[in-house]
């Protein structure tokens, strides 16, 4: 990660923090939602955008984190330990989800993750002693390092600090041999093997690291909602996260945050407009309709996402992707041949 990326990351986080703390409860709620979504998108961007393994199980992985952290802090542990626990179990489950990737590629692996999502959703519903079944696990507000997390505002600082740490860690990771190996695996497993990369090992690392971040995001989501229920972590949530990283720009550095902000804030905006227009009874359906239409339009007209759109407006912008490169551009913006097809 370059000094500029460090400055941008910290600057954006500070800005979000100031907004969240200064503008009252609703702003704090939005900042938390964006930060948590950005964490989840960051992890999925690592798995899909950088390593090229399409996963539809992200929603369930967040669920694992939420249930784990919820149970740990309900049992009286400090929130920081509980979040760490959520991350670790998230990583373990993610490794299981990624296991078929040792043998399967592309489409087949994507379908395998679809199954993992379905099975995990089912487990959330039936593992009653841990998940409290369909009614969901009520999470009492924890204390994180001694600070009680009893309001939206109090959660802003921990979620932003974690977001910055994870963001910097992933940026750093993409400059290491392992990070480079991810990109090669994405472009061609055969080439990766030819270069002496242990493809299975690289994929497994991507799932472990991605799963850890997803688990942490889920833990924070559990604390923000104070409830972990099966309906919150369905395939629809997985679809939201895939939408975020595609809208933000697959495999780009700023993509996950841009996409997360877009996908979280757009429905809120529609909600406000709808309430003002007095059509609140069909609002949730309209919100979904607008969301789905936007995904489709985005994918058709700007498959490289908002990052590419922004950098076209300002050619030397952040994460600038050169014109004409089909598919996902690399982490620091070098052109990469082909896509993750």
């Amino acid at each position: 990660m370059s000094a500029r990326q460090l400055a941008i990351t910290v600057g954006v986080a500070v800005l979000m923090g100031v907004l969240g703390l200064a503008l009252g409860r609703y702003a704090a709620y939005l900042v938390n939602a964006v930060a948590i979504a950005a964490l989840g998108a960051l992890s999925l961007n690592l798995i899909i955008g950088y390593c090229g393994q399409i996963s539809f199980a992200q929603g369930a992985l967040l669920g694992v984190g939420a249930y784990t952290a919820g149970n740990l802090s309900n049992a009286g542990l400090d929130g920081a330990v509980a979040i760490l626990g959520g991350g670790l179990l998230g990583a373990a489950v993610s490794a299981l989800v990624g296991l078929p990737a040792m043998r399967l590629r592309g489409l087949y692996f994507a379908i395998a993750t679809l199954a993992a999502q379905a099975i995990l959703e089912y487990l959330f519903k039936i593992l009653d002693p841990l998940t409290n079944g369909v009614s969901g696990l009520v999470i009492t507000p924890p204390t994180i390092l001694g600070f009680p997390m009893n309001s939206d505002q109090s959660l802003v600082v921990p979620s932003l600090v974690i977001l910055v740490l994870a963001w910097l860690a992933v940026s750093r990771l993409m400059r290491t041999d392992l990070g480079r190996a991810f990109l090669v695996v994405r472009e061609s497993e055969i080439v990766a093997k030819g270069m002496g990369i242990d493809v299975s090992h690289a994929k497994m690392q991507a799932f472990l690291i991605g799963g850890f971040i997803a688990g942490v995001a889920g833990a924070l989501a559990g604390y923000a909602n104070r409830l972990a229920s099966p309906e919150a972590f369905t395939l629809d949530l997985s679809a939201d996260y895939i939408a975020m990283i595609i809208i933000g720009g697959l495999g780009t550095w700023p993509g996950p945050l841009i996409g997360a902000a877009f996908v979280v804030l757009l429905p809120e905006a529609i909600q406000r407009v709808g309430e003002a227009a007095g059509i609140s009874d069909i609002l949730s359906a309209l919100r979904e309709l607008a969301f789905g239409l936007l995904i489709i339009l985005f994918l058709i007209f700007e498959p490289r996402g908002l990052t590419a759109l922004l950098s076209r407006l300002r050619p030397r912008g952040i994460g600038a992707a050169p014109h004409g490169s089909v598919g996902a551009p690399g982490e620091s913006g070098q052109p990469q041949e082909g896509g993750s097809r």
Partner: peptide, 30 residues
């Protein structure tokens, strides 16, 4: 929807069909 996406990556193609699912469900809900 699908024809303009002939050259898009696999994940985008899968996602656009999921988008169709979301839109149809929302439309029927309305």
């Amino acid at each position: 929807v699908l024809r303009p996406m002939l050259k898009a990556p696999l994940v985008a193609v899968m996602m656009v069909t999921l988008g169709l699912l979301i839109v149809s469900r929302a439309a029927c809900l309305i």
